[in-house]
Design a protein around this nucleic acid. Structure first.
Lengths: 126, 126, 126, 126
DNA sequence: GTGGTCTAGACCACA
DNA sequence: GTGGTCTAGACCACA
């Protein structure tokens, strides 16, 4: 389920986090589902256990998973990811608008770009 | 004109690049204007000349400035920055839309967020 | 495998880049092979790690290697080097022909020079 | 007659040398023609007299001009430039062939590229 | 004066 | 262990 792209510039632990968030978003991992153990996932992906450990710690800090000593790590609440992502999107929108204004792209022009991008996504889904 | 933010996580050389791009975008630096010399800017910002050197070399690679050995560095074409930024915006839009679709934000909802952000920008400018 | 020629006027980092490109071209370094670490290669060649670092970063920018933080640098695609070299050759040919025309060397005369050079290369290979 | 391109990466003195060589090759400057004085050319091009001085010294070293104290600098022999350029071309050909062999471009393929480039030059001249 | 390259060595994030 | 950034300072070519 989780794939590491070594040609991706981001650190591996970030990729692991994002992939797990995606699996939660898509409903593949649901509340109270158990995650693979640090060791088994590290083995499966052929990466250092420390890296998985770090990813899990970060996911716990974000409130997306919880850990029960001696039992393992579990998905805490799939809604939390949605909430956090929505906040990120709000920030992305603000940055995008600032950047657009800087180069003279106005509200209407940007909306056209947005509509175009949605059109493409819909095409792909067919 | 150029300010370094030590709380910013990005490397100093990247901040320098971005600040100079901004000065070009805003028309404060125009074609064939001479940039401060590597050494003088390093002194002014109290950072190492190598760091400025790296920023300038990157700006040259991007085509935003050109360098004449023994003379200095000069703004090459302020239009080049606009063009590159517009390409970045196109990419940002695509990413934003993908991310929105993932959490169930549709076209209309996203456009409302965009309009809101533009409204805020206009308020600030007043 | 990599040799620095201190009599060569070109900077060391450029020589390192070219040598690595050659090793890729000759198939000695293949896709996903790990390059020596910045530090170890620096030690081996008795040059500063920063200089190797610069060479590797340039190779990454050119798309010939990719880097995974904390893991190392790897050959990305040996075909990319061939493609880029072929573009260079096209440019070299154009320049050579312009230069030849300037001194009155025509098509047939230049082709004779080319054939002579190929003859010599074949001799060397025997 | 002489134009400096500040966006050219080569040092200014080299550009001056090349431009003068070109004027000789094209027969615009002929044997014993007087060159402009160091000072007047520096003024005309708005560059440092040291730079012109260096270019003239280099041209003298190459045997393309000669200097008479108190009189000025003169074209020595327009044939000398042709001879030197032909030697350069021989070297360029050797390098080009080596580079071609490295990427698997053979004699026939390279000749086709050469013919193509000559075709383009002829087109331009029409 | 200007930029370009390089050394020596430090500290950081990441695996 | 790995690469990434930065400092301090030297020496070079060029104008």
């Amino acid at each position: 389920m989780i794939v590491i792209d070594y040609k991706d510039k981001r650190p591996i632990y970030e990729q692991v986090i994002e992939r797990i968030e995606q699996l939660i978003l898509r409903g593949i991992l649901k509340s109270d589902d158990m995650l693979p153990s640090v060791r088994s996932l590290a083995m499966e992906l052929s990466i250092n256990p420390n890296t998985i450990q770090r990813a899990y710690q970060e996911l716990e800090r974000l409130g997306f998973i919880y850990t029960v000593k001696g039992k393992g790590s579990f998905i805490s609440d799939n809604q939390a990811v949605v909430t956090q992502r929505k906040e990120e999107i709000q920030q992305d929108v603000d940055q995008l608008v600032s950047k657009s204004v800087e180069v003279g792209i106005g509200e209407n022009e940007l909306i056209i770009l947005i509509k175009g991008a949605f059109g493409r996504v819909k095409e792909e889904m067919k």
